[in-house]
Design a binder for these strands. Structure first.
Length: 515
DNA sequence: GGGGGAAGGACTC
DNA sequence: CCTAGGAGTCCTTCCCCC
């Protein structure tokens, strides 16, 4: 797995199936474009920190005694049986995910893009790419200039959030028909609890029950025959739909999807495609954690159902790589990997060890995963916890400019706060230098504030302190932003400044810490 | 010991 | 030629002040 270079820079082939052939070639190009850059140097530094963290963990592991281990084992077993008793398989949770959403919207609106590798974003950053571009290794969160090296013919379309928001609203109308309390996670993704909807469906008159001929499956291009009145789907040529194939309704017979969960979700995806000409993938499972994994299984334009019985869940989880679980990222994967844990079954086998090496919240989370447990009721999150705005820009030298930019961001933030009639107590200044090192500086007020001037009064002091820390060197900003918390309010000013300036800033901090 | 604040990170889309 | 995001949540660690 170690390919002799920084693994965090390498192509993340977690999702797309990629042959080893190009993979090495792609990684080589990514490496050559990255090497020596400030970004890369910072990634290197971060990787060293993770490695040190792993070393400390391994040291800790070496000092664990048999006694500790068996005590932890008992604790784990107790917890496991408690959790098992509470296992709820009664709900039908669906995770729906639009396929390459931004890219699909742009392709729909500009069919010339259909057969071309394309991505949405800019030369600095891509938000998503279509499946054609992914074959070249072009991925979300990759800078466009590197993507261009991987795929010189790549078409980069600028991002247009307003458009995606509008499409998202249409998709959400469909979601609402299946679960009025659905939980949107982003513009293109949501969780639904369709248990109640399925109950209703079962009450449908017999005449409306499934009359489709032939069996159904989502595992490929199997075409289904369904006749619907007055509908005419627009399908992508390059993403053949597995939705029901419409026939000329000569007989005028109206056929409807069946009453089971698969049929309901197939119908929902079909309606989304009718309405937006875009395809979605879905996962059906007894809880959110599993549904999320399932929605990835037959992507794009497919769905997968994990039956609601304990054994099916256990079997499903066994060989699942831990990285597939939402919430387990690169770092956790690497730490677990150092312990020989790559799959969820390993996770279960090593729970006692994990209970000793990780915090309570962490190992509880691991235990839930290893048992295939997750939230069984979705709820829209209550009040927001924070609000922020940050911006990257070209280098900026003058102090006056920095302060006026800071004020501008405070103004933006104040506006956003006003829209939701919120105030905040904590203002946070976030700084990033040209070496991609990030710091935050926060100040908590006795009472909540919301106006530009109130925010700026705090932000400018925080900024001034940072400037003073590096004076007489100038602060040369390249990025600025701000953040607010409704109860606490945060303001982030993200800045890039010159290397020498930063170093003296850190010297100062170190000096202070020594006192 | 606990709560709140501050700073830094991991993770998600 | 240059060029590596933005918004949000949660967690951990450290510190201070009870």
């Amino acid at each position: 797995r170690d390919r002799g270079f920084l693994s965090r820079m390498a192509l993340n082939d977690n999702k797309a199936g990629m042959e080893g052939l190009n993979r090495d070639k792609i990684n080589k190009i990514i490496m050559e474009s990255s090497k020596g850059s400030r970004f890369y140097e910072n990634e290197l530094k971060k990787e060293q920190q993770v490695n040190q963290r792993i070393e400390r963990m391994m040291l800790q592991k070496a000092h664990i005694t048999e006694q500790q281990l068996s005590k932890a084992q008992a604790q784990v077993e107790k917890m496991t049986s408690d959790l098992e008793r509470g296992r709820d398989l009664s709900r039908v949770i669906v995770h729906v995910d639009m396929d390459a959403f931004y890219a699909a919207v742009e392709t729909r609106d500009c069919p010339d893009l259909m057969d071309k590798p394309m991505a949405v974003g800019s030369m600095s950053m891509l938000s998503t790419s279509n499946y054609h571009a992914r074959k070249f290794g072009v991925r979300a969160a990759m800078p466009g200039f590197i993507a261009k090296k991987l795929c010189p013919n790549l078409v980069i379309v600028p991002i247009n959030f307003d458009k995606y928001r509008a499409v998202s609203a249409e998709v959400r109308e469909v979601f609402a028909d299946y679960d009025p309390h659905f939980l949107p996670m982003s513009l293109d993704e949501a969780y639904l609890d369709i248990s109640d909807h399925l109950e209703q469906r079962r009450g449908w008159p017999e005449a409306l029950h499934d009359k489709r001929r032939g069996s159904s499956s989502d595992h490929g291009g199997l075409q289904e025959t369904v006749e619907l009145e007055g509908l005419s789907p627009v399908l992508f040529e390059n993403s053949p739909s597995s939705s029901p194939c419409l026939q000329d309704a000569a007989g005028g017979e109206v056929e409807v999807f069946g009453t089971c969960a698969e049929e309901a979700v197939r119908e929902m995806r079909f309606r989304i495609e009718q309405k937006t000409s875009l395809t979605a993938s879905a996962g059906i499972a007894p809880n959110m954690m599993l549904a999320k994994v399932c929605s990835d299984k037959n992507k794009p334009n497919g769905q997968y159902r994990l039956p609601s019985n304990r054994q099916a869940v256990i079997d499903f989880i066994q060989d699942l790589p831990v990285r597939k679980i939402s919430g387990i990222g690169k770092v956790t994967e690497k730490m677990l990997g150092a312990l020989g844990i790559t799959s969820c079954s390993h996770l279960g086998q090593e729970m006692a060890l994990l209970a000793l090496l990780f915090s309570e919240t962490s190992w509880h989370h691991f235990l839930h995963i290893s048992m295939g447990l997750g939230s069984t009721h979705i709820e829209r999150d209550g009040e927001r916890k924070s609000m922020s705005t940050e911006r990257t820009f070209g280098e900026m030298g003058a102090l006056e400019e920095q302060f006026s930019l800071c004020r501008e961001l405070c103004q933006d933030l104040a506006q956003d706060l006003q829209k939701e009639a919120l105030k905040g107590k904590t203002v946070t200044l976030k700084l990033k230098n040209v070496n991609f090192e990030v710091k935050t500086r926060a100040w908590t007020l006795p009472c909540a504030v919301a106006t530009t001037e109130e925010l700026f009064a705090v932000a400018k002091d925080l900024l001034k302190t940072e400037i003073d820390n590096v004076s007489p060197q100038p602060l040369r900003l390249r990025l600025m932003g701000n953040l607010t918390l409704p109860s606490p309010v945060c303001l982030n000013v993200v800045s890039h400044w010159q290397e020498n300036t930063l170093i003296s800033a850190f010297k100062h901090v170190v000096h202070n810490n020594n006192i």
